[in-house]
């Protein structure tokens, strides 16, 4: 069998993302990366928890945060986690077009989340004059939530380039691990958001 035949079998194996050595290595390596990301976000969360009451007489979490917008953002991102599960389901069934459709929906939900976050930040800046420089709380808030938003932005760009590059390739053992890696990344972004809405918004509202 030639190299090409190995990567393009007649029928896709049960776990196309882990059928090649490269795929397995990518999978393991990506979890290693996620372990590092966990520590990165932990330091930002720790910093935020330490500084969240240092408002320097500026606006506090309790003054500004509203639950409605954050709730919609949460539902958008949670749903996008499910749609990427659907995409991987279709990948395992070798249904390339359906996989691309669900990946597209995932990207759109991510865009929706990002737009609301930008709206939220603009709202704080224009309505409350709450910026990165307002207080230690401001710096910690924008760093933590902005870092998460940055990850969402990066994820959307990653997904878009994956979809464009592979649009005409179809599904094979070469690109299946790529799609799966993105899906893992996207779930992880959702995991981080669960803590953002709990620690920043809900606990901020409680006091």
């Amino acid at each position: 069998m030639s190299h090409h035949d190995v990567l393009h079998p007649e029928t896709l194996p049960a776990e196309p993302e882990k059928a090649t050595l490269e795929g397995r290595n990518k999978y393991l390596g990506f979890w290693f990366f996620l372990g590092g990301e966990t520590v990165l976000f932990a330091s930002l969360f720790g910093t935020y928890i330490s500084l969240r009451n240092s408002t320097a007489d500026g606006p506090s979490a309790h003054d500004m945060f509203g639950l409605d917008l954050v709730f919609i953002m949460t539902i958008l991102l949670l749903t996008s986690s499910l749609t990427s599960v659907y995409a991987m389901y279709h990948m395992k069934n070798n249904a390339f077009k359906k996989m691309m459709l669900w990946l597209g929906i995932t990207g759109l939900l991510g865009l929706g989340f990002l737009s609301l976050e930008i709206y939220e930040f603009t709202h704080y800046i224009t309505e409350y004059g709450f910026t990165f420089r307002s207080s230690a709380f401001g710096s910690a808030f924008y760093t933590l939530v902005g870092f998460h938003g940055g990850h969402v932005t990066f994820g959307i760009l990653w997904l878009a380039s994956l979809m464009i590059r592979n649009a005409k390739r179809g599904l094979n053992l070469y690109n299946a691990p790529k799609f799966n890696t993105f899906s893992l990344y996207w779930h992880f972004i959702d995991v981080v958001w669960v803590f953002v809405f709990t620690v920043v918004y809900l606990m901020g509202k409680v006091g």
Partner: peptide
């Protein structure tokens, strides 16, 4: 199991970081 070990390592370090920073404050 290996991937689980990697993420547990990350979670462990994360818990220490948050506890440490929280305790200091």
């Amino acid at each position: 199991s290996m991937t689980a070990l990697l993420i547990y390592g990350g979670i462990w370090a994360a818990a220490l970081t948050v506890t440490g920073l929280g305790a200091i404050t």
